[in-house]
Amino acid sequence: MLGKRKRQTKAISGSEVRSSRSDSSASDVDAPEIFRRHFETQFTPLPNIEKPAVVEEELEEEDESESESAWGGISEEDQNAIEVVEHADVHTRMAAVSKEELKSFMSSKPPTSAPPISIVRNPSATTVDGDDASEAANLKKDLALHRLLTESHLLDSANSSTAMGKNRHKATDLRLQALGAKSSIFKQEKMPMSERKGIIAKQTQREKARRDEARQNGIILEKVKMKSKMESGKRDRGVGAPGVGKFSGGTLRLSKKDIADIEGPRRGSNGRGGRGGGRGRGKRGK
């Protein structure tokens, strides 16, 4: 669209130039001009190329006949300057907001105050200058060396090609545990209880055998890790939360055990007698 307009303005100004020229200097037109005009009446207008010559000519001419030319006020340069009309619409700038932000704004939830994490990173931010680059490379090498040192024991069995994948997984497991993973990725989550029991029994038995052997040989081993008591004990309830039952969805749910705890042991007659009495009454009602 823009290109079309430009072309139009160019064409108009060109024709204007030519017409004005024909008005003013009809007396002393040179031969190429006549040819040119002839050609243009027959065919399409020619592109303007011999500007400097024309300008000189016009300047010379202006000295002679300044009064008669009404168009002389407008200089040649102004006429030839292409008027560019640019219609800059706001629609071009509309895409300033990312799609994720727009989506989150138009969702049914209230917009969050936290700035959204943009997935697309600024490419300029990742470029680093000279010594920073070397620093980064050094860090990388350090990391590689560290990994080699910590995981080198896995390489002992890495001769066979099948062990490569296993070793990779083992290395991943080691790294995860170093980062603080709760359990190993090799731990199977679901399995029959009997199998699990067997595995645990075998582990403890193996450990016990190792310790026995070490003691007999006079080797001092590491201390046995004590299991923390916190895990099996009561869990910590928050401040202000109810001391009994389970609170969810605005309701406090009390299990039968909770109710029994609150009520405490029955006084007077023993529980059996009371229940029996209740049953008896029911039967009598029938």
């Binding site: 704004f105 049914s108 939830k109 209230p110 917009p111 969050t112 105050s113």
Partner: peptide, 23 residues
């Protein structure tokens, strides 16, 4: 209501993640 009033609740410790106005 959704964009200018509901965010005010967050300052009172009422999380905005659990409110919704579906049009």
């Amino acid at each position: 209501v959704r964009t200018a009033v509901l965010p005010l609740y967050e300052k009172f410790g009422i999380p905005g993640a659990k409110m919704e106005i579906r049009v």
